[in-house]
Design a protein around this nucleic acid. Structure first.
Lengths: 172, 172
DNA sequence: AAAACTGCTTGCGATTTGCAAGCAGTTGGC
DNA sequence: GCCAACTGCTTGCAAATCGCAAGCAGTTTT
């Protein structure tokens, strides 16, 4: 897929690794959805990633050091994918992209609530989130506060609000 | 190339527009290299973009509102491409990506000097840069200080240093 | 009048994508 | 023990995209 050595520019090298329509989706689901198994990443994917593409991307992300893989002790066939420090360090990139997307693209309110929180929280919140990801994916100590829970709960509430609004449209 | 409606997630929608290996390269060259004509974007491209790909990406970026195009008064065939506010707003995304790339990928020192400056300058510098881009690409007033000149000069110096070092390798 | 330059198109083989089905092995419920 | 459900992942194939080279009509420079 990717040829080597287009140029030594950081933007270009980043695009050579992540410049497609699926790699960052996979990382996003691992990061914000805490999805760690193959089928989990495939079945719960909002965008409906095909299994061969997922297999290919996981392989590529492994080769490039963004994620790691270990066997699941509870199931001999299961593998657990984890973010590496390199993958966790993409948090600011996700935050910037998500903030841009929610400002200029036709996002849905539920899906952009987390982008909003991340934008408002700024770099300080991103650091907290990264510390939590180091706990979830690496062997770092557990932080006091869970940013992921906060994000997930806000998302859950937004979905709930939408569901309620759709069910009772008398309030116009 | 892109199908519509995978999901309303800001990350996904951003990837549907910019998730390939060339779109951001084109925008990068317009933004940091101030390249505004077709041939300029093609010939001076460090990565060697093919003309059909460039034509396709410019069309797509136009359709998606990231750039605009107007005729060049000085040459009846020339078109001038400009960044829109939507395109200019990608500065933080570029800064985040470039910073990540320079930390984790095999970048060359010359090519990462600008990423370094942007990372050190932080959001305050990005805002200054965006104000300057609004002057160069839209009709905004000229800011006092030119961030682009600063970046370009630092890059030029880095290239010069490298050239000198390559020419006289007696200093080991 | 010739040469160089303008944005951009065309042709074509190789790669990548999207979609559906399937496979060998594992686990859990009965 | 037995079977259904589940595991990560592969295969086949048509359609789309990519990378590369050449070329084109019109404009400007020399």
């Amino acid at each position: 897929m990717r040829e080597t050595g287009r140029s030594g520019c950081p933007i270009n090298l980043t695009l050579e690794i992540l410049g497609d329509r699926w790699s960052l989706i996979v990382l996003r689901d691992m990061m914000f959805g805490n999805r760690r198994h193959f089928r989990e990443l495939q079945a719960k994917s909002d965008e409906g990633i095909a299994s061969n593409i997922l297999a290919d991307r996981l392989k590529r992300l492994l080769e490039n050091g963004l994620i790691s893989r270990r066997d699941d002790a509870s199931h001999k066939q299961k593998g657990i994918y984890s973010l590496t420090e390199m993958g966790i360090s993409l948090v600011p990139v996700f935050a910037a992209m998500a903030d841009w997307g929610r400002r200029f693209l036709p996002v849905t309110p539920e899906m952009s609530i987390r982008a909003e929180i991340l934008a408002e929280g700024g770099p300080a919140l991103w650091q907290k989130f990264m510390a939590e990801l180091r706990f979830l994916h690496l062997d770092a100590p557990q932080p006091a506060q869970s940013v992921l829970d906060e994000l997930t709960e806000a998302y859950r509430c937004a979905v709930e609000r939408k569901r309620a609004a759709d069910a009772e449209p008398e309030v116009v």
